[in-house]
């Protein structure tokens, strides 16, 4: 009889068909999904590939099989030619899908179990990750904030986990507003202290807001959020404590890191594939610890080893040093 009564409720059909499957219905599941730092703590790297502070040898450029990478590096008009996928775009949206699965899941969870402190934090974390990706994507795939000519070409703001729904591109303004609004909500719920720097904190949300407003050229706001971040964020590293003998002297999750993220790995931005511009390298005084901690001069060029990822992978997260930079830039 209880079966009968239960069957009349809508939830009766929501049970997962196999117990082997984790269907993301508990807060612990959501935390587990967000702890997949191999997926979520990543940032696109095509911007890095097209930047001018490093160069690759002609030989290694020619050896690169990816058309997209080679064309990005030389700023070709057609980046893709015959290629159809852009990993920066595809992977960012794969992350956004996971954030949306968590956001939809929490909404459903809160409907039956009520809102709790924990559910709010997880919602804030998912909003943070989604905003992090939107903001990163906007830097590569959209004209800068304020551009009127290409205003219509913002990002497709995918805000739910239904893959069948395909949003059109939003306006550039809308894209940024979405990011700052979501981040402001995240700020209000994320905890000030966290155990793992792969998880978003209040400081990380302030930091990302500061970065967003800097991109939007709203310097007073950027200054305010950078300031808030510095206030609750970690201190700077004392470079005297670092071991220059280590392969990568700056460890992952070091004191300055607020949120860990790796840049996407391409063959041109990984390890010793690229060389640092010697003008930049030479601008450091020999007594500057950074000259030895960040770089290694080799026969084939000057290699970078100062990644906050503590490896051959470039850092793409948020650090307190970046906040000091924003802080200074906004006051300039």
């Amino acid at each position: 009889m209880s079966l009968l009564i239960a069957s009349c409720k809508n939830e009766w059909l929501d049970v997962k068909p196999s117990k082997m499957l984790v269907d993301a219905s508990t807060l612990a599941d959501f935390q587990g999904i967000l702890d997949n730092n191999n997926l979520l703590n990543k940032a696109p790297a095509l911007g890095f590939l097209s930047a001018d502070n490093f160069y690759v040898s002609v030989a290694s450029w020619q050896a690169t099989t990816s058309t997209l990478q080679r064309n990005t590096y030389v700023w070709a008009d057609d980046l893709y030619e015959a290629e159809t996928q852009n990993p920066d775009w595809t992977n960012a949206y794969a992350r956004i899908l996971v954030s949306n699965v968590v956001l939809d899941g929490i909404e459903k969870f809160e409907r039956t179990h009520g809102v709790s402190e924990e559910s709010k934090v997880l919602r804030g974390a998912a909003l943070f990750f989604r905003s992090f990706d939107f903001l990163n994507l906007a830097q590569i795939f959209c004209m800068p904030y304020g551009n009127q000519e290409y205003q219509a070409y913002g990002l497709p703001l995918k805000l739910n986990s239904n893959v069948n729904e395909r949003p059109d591109r939003a306006k550039i303004d809308e894209t940024y507003f979405r990011v700052v609004n979501d981040l402001q909500e995240a700020c209000s719920v994320l905890p000030a202290t966290i155990t793992y720097k792969t998880r978003p904190s209040k400081a990380a949300a302030y930091g990302l807001l500061a970065r967003a407003y800097l991109f939007m050229q709203e310097y007073d706001k950027a200054l305010r959020y950078a300031d808030s971040c510095i206030r609750i964020g970690p201190d700077l590293l004392d470079y005297n404590t670092l071991l220059s003998s280590a392969n990568y002297p700056l460890p992952a999750l070091n004191d300055e890191v607020i949120l860990h993220a790796d840049l996407a790995v391409y063959s041109l931005n990984y390890g010793t594939a690229f060389n640092v511009d010697s003008n930049l390298y030479n601008s450091y005084l020999d007594t500057d610890l950074r000259k030895t901690l960040f770089f290694r001069a080799q026969a084939d060029g000057i290699k970078y080893r100062g990644s906050y990822s503590g490896s051959a992978i470039s850092f793409g997260g948020i650090s307190i040093s970046e906040m000091f930079l924003i802080h200074s830039e906004c006051q300039a």
Partner: peptide, 14 residues
């Protein structure tokens, strides 16, 4: 998980 050694969940089917 890398870096944290936490138990984490990977999306298996959408």
């Amino acid at each position: 998980a890398r870096l944290t050694n936490l138990r984490y969940a990977v999306l298996r089917s959408v």
